[in-house]
Computed example of a mutant assay.
Amino acid sequence: MNVPQTKSELLLAIDKNFNKLISYLNVIPPELTSDNSMDGHSKGTEMSIHDLVSYLIGWNTLVVKWITYDEKGLPVDFPETGFKWNELGLLAQKFYSDYRELNYRALMTELESVKDHIVKLIDERTDDDLYGKPWYTKWTMGRMISFNTSSPYANANANGRLRKWAKNNNISLK
């Protein structure tokens, strides 16, 4: 799928990519979701399915925070307060820790909930709000949302890692 350029394309990309990701995540036996046997977000590390879902929740939660702060006229710390763009591995570790106590079912519910919140925030905005002007450096709000929702749902961040992990564990994701 091409990079979304409009509100409707963004909503479609989120829906399509999220549904495919969820279909994969739903076939994974819950007892395997805590095994650190998947390539991690930092080079040379390993993580679990639970960590991957925590990572996605973390980024989606940041998107909600960014939009909410911006809406209130508050300064937005990109990517997150206390983290720089060259510290994303540390930020990933924070996300794993933030959601460590949730069981897999609760984690999946949280992922769906935060995705739904983002969709609501997008619905409340116009194409011009989302794509009419730069929001963070050269990137529009719509592009920043896409970078942290539909793109990681579909790319090697999630689906690619899941497919490789499933193949190594003889699990069919279909």
Rank of each mutant, 00 (worst) to 15 (best):
N2W: 03
N2S: 13
V3G: 07
P4T: 10
Q5F: 05
S8R: 12
L10W: 02
L11W: 05
L11N: 08
I14K: 02
I14R: 04
D15K: 10
N17V: 09
N17P: 04
F18G: 09
N19D: 07
K20Q: 15
L21S: 09
L25Y: 00
N26A: 14
N26Y: 08
N26T: 15
L32H: 07
L32G: 08
T33Y: 02
N36V: 14
N36R: 13
M38H: 04
M38Q: 01
G40Y: 02
H41L: 14
T45A: 02
L52G: 11
V53K: 04
S54E: 02
Y55G: 11
I57W: 00
I57F: 00
W59E: 10
W59P: 08
N60F: 04
T61F: 04
V64R: 06
K65T: 15
T68S: 10
E71Q: 12
G73N: 03
G73V: 06
P75N: 03
P75W: 01
V76N: 00
P79I: 08
G82L: 01
K84V: 11
K84R: 13
W85E: 13
E87G: 13
L88V: 14
L88I: 12
L91Q: 12
L91H: 11
A92Q: 03
Q93N: 13
D98E: 12
D98W: 04
Y99L: 00
Y99P: 00
Y99R: 00
R100F: 10
R100N: 13
E101M: 10
E101A: 15
Y104V: 10
Y104E: 04
Y104T: 13
R105F: 07
R105A: 15
A106C: 11
A106K: 15
A106G: 11
T109R: 09
E112L: 09
V114T: 14
V114E: 01
K115N: 14
K120H: 09
K120F: 07
I122N: 01
D123G: 08
E124Y: 06
E124T: 13
R125E: 07
D128G: 04
D129V: 03
L130H: 06
L130W: 04
Y131N: 07
Y131V: 08
Y131K: 04
G132D: 05
P134Q: 07
P134W: 02
W135D: 01
W135V: 05
Y136G: 04
Y136P: 02
T140P: 01
T140V: 03
M141S: 06
M144E: 14
I145L: 02
S146Q: 11
S146M: 05
F147C: 11
N148P: 05
N148G: 07
S150C: 08
P152W: 00
Y153T: 10
A154E: 12
N155R: 06
A156N: 12
A158N: 04
A158H: 03
N159A: 12
G160I: 03
R163L: 09
K164T: 15
W165Q: 05
A166E: 01
K167V: 09
N168I: 09
N169H: 15
N169V: 10
N170V: 15
N170G: 13
N170Y: 11
I171S: 07
S172L: 05
K174P: 06
